[in-house]
């Protein structure tokens, strides 16, 4: 499906540069860009939350909350560190913990550098490509293993079940995600030194 827009940001469903759209939200409070993000991610967040055990109306309400947070916290988004899908996932996960478990999740300290005002295009592209490779690697897993991963992220497996589950293909995933570590080291070299 081709959905051309005058700014050329949206070319086809698969090639949409979500990060560029989110940066338009961040830098220009661009409501049109937000609407495109909303149409893609809100129904996925709703499906994700319902698979996590939320009823339809709670999932609808929380999906709207998640998209509102996306708008409000757009300034924290760093396309070199995470894809938009990853970032939306973290917001949805935290919303689920609040809504379904009525608990909170402690978050680590911010990194020294924070999001760069002018994100490195090459790094942002690398993050996006690596995320796509990760998606393909997950899709290519044998069904039982893929199902286990999905169930873990839908919140169907407790932490002790995750610890006990030997069928989790963590090795497969890890070989795909070494990049995050390399990238962090690279940026640590550039950023101010930690004390």
């Amino acid at each position: 499906m081709l959905r051309r827009k005058k700014d050329g940001l949206v070319s086809s469903e698969d090639e949409t540069d979500w990060a560029a759209l989110l940066l338009r939200v961040r830098d220009h409070q661009d409501r049109a860009a937000f609407a495109v993000l909303f149409r893609h991610f809100a129904p996925r967040v709703k499906a994700f939350l319902m698979k996590s055990g939320a009823g339809a109306s709670l999932a609808e309400e929380c999906a709207q909350d998640v998209m509102a947070v996306l708008w409000q916290k757009a300034h924290l988004f760093d396309p070199a560190r995470a894809s938009v899908a990853t970032w939306v996932y973290t917001i949805a996960r935290n919303r689920r913990i609040n809504a379904l478990r009525r608990a909170r999740r402690a978050e680590p300290e911010e990194l020294d550098w924070g999001p760069a005002p002018e994100p490195d295009q090459a790094e942002a592209l690398e993050t996006r490509q690596e995320t796509e490779r990760l998606g393909r690697a997950l899709a290519a897993l044998p069904t039982p293993q893929r199902t286990l991963i999905e169930r873990a992220f839908y919140g169907e497996l407790s932490h002790s079940e995750i610890a006990a589950e030997t069928g989790l293909p963590l090795g497969t995933i890890k070989s795909r995600i070494r990049l995050a570590l390399d990238k962090l080291r690279h940026r640590m070299g550039e950023g101010p030194k930690r004390t």
Partner: peptide, 26 residues
């Protein structure tokens, strides 16, 4: 920082799962 990068990577797995979670109309 090693574990932080590893944790970021697991978040990315969550992102991939979200992408494939299907769509339920808002």
């Amino acid at each position: 920082d090693d574990c932080r990068a590893q944790a970021d990577s697991f978040d990315a797995v969550g992102g991939a799962v979200l992408e494939e979670a299907g769509e339920i109309a808002m």
